[in-house]
Nucleic acid binder design. Structure first.
Lengths: 178, 178
DNA sequence: TATTGTTATACTCTATAACTATA
DNA sequence: TATAGTTATAGAGTATAACAATA
């Protein structure tokens, strides 16, 4: 299998004595240039969100809860007796994806579906005593987590920061519809 | 459109002769209570990140690029000849997951692997002409996207905002190691 | 022994179509 | 016809173990 002319993939053959290509002259130790990425709002938002979530996920793991499970417990606890689809919508979770989530909370004895007499297609969802207790623990755990996050924001700064995040969220979500 | 009775909120029809459970007495029209969620930094970060990314994803879709593909093109373009594993690490992408990403860019003629004479285990990755052209287009597209995002930040505010995001990212990433 | 690229695999999250039983 | 819950499924994204070639 030998070729004479334009090798199909341009394989860089042997060093060919001194024939160091431009590619090989680079400094392999320098940190990579990320270009415009660090100045992009979305990139910065994503990195910060992942870093904050890593701490929250780790904290909730001690209760065997993931963030989505916590948010479901919280919203059911705050709105007992609402329909399953209302809880899902409030959290931006699609109805089909909510089923397994709810099944798991039910299996663990944390939440229950109860038939609605007024509409037999629907279920009202409520927390069990165990669910309320676990929710209370999770809220304490996440309050500590939130303190860890806010340690890195100057006093009073986090209010303005949260407002900015909410404004971006609302404004960009509107654009989305257009 | 007047009504004599303010039943708007109490529209639980068919009270069914006292057979109404506590669950059924709720106001089904009120927006749900999200509890502590809106005050949590991580929740606000996530919502904002998703909203901003929705716009970026939509913008990049016209070039048949996803955000991860754009970031790979960008970092290769800025650091031509680097090893595949270096590009992946700079973007926080695990080596096994980078393979299919790189395969796809290669299949589309946007990037190439070229053998490294100095270490025959490694490949240096570079953009093709097509890859450079598409990268340039994508950067223009995302610069417009970034303008749309910053329209919602007061003048000069976005610099402080980006710094805050970066500080949170760095600080929380350190904690992570501990 | 350690590292690079790779394969295989698995689990989460998300998104859509379509079924059922009700309304 | 339309809606609530469900099933099935598919696509990304992400994570780890292990192998071959090479260092």
């Amino acid at each position: 299998m030998k070729r004479t002319v334009p090798q199909k993939t341009q394989r860089r053959l042997q060093p060919r004595a001194g024939a160091v290509s431009a590619v090989d002259m680079r400094n392999d130790d320098a940190p990579l240039d990320l270009g415009m990425l660090p100045e992009m709002t979305g990139y910065a938002l994503r990195r910060a969100q992942l870093a904050v979530f890593a701490d929250a996920i780790n904290a909730l793991a001690s209760l065997d809860l993931r963030p989505a499970q916590f948010s479901v417990l919280l919203v059911i606890g705050r709105n007992p007796g609402r329909k399953q689809s209302e809880i899902a919508e409030a959290l931006g979770i699609q109805r089909p994806n909510f089923v397994a989530l709810m099944d798991e909370l039910n299996r663990r004895g944390l939440a229950r579906r109860t038939p609605l007499a007024s509409d037999r297609r629907s279920y009202a969802v409520v927390l069990t005593k165990d669910g309320e207790a676990l929710l209370a623990e999770a809220q304490e755990t996440l309050t500590e987590h939130e303190r860890r996050v806010r340690r890195h924001l100057q006093d009073g700064q986090h209010q303005a920061f949260l407002r900015t995040l909410a404004r971006i969220n609302e404004a960009m979500s509107e654009v989305e519809k257009a």
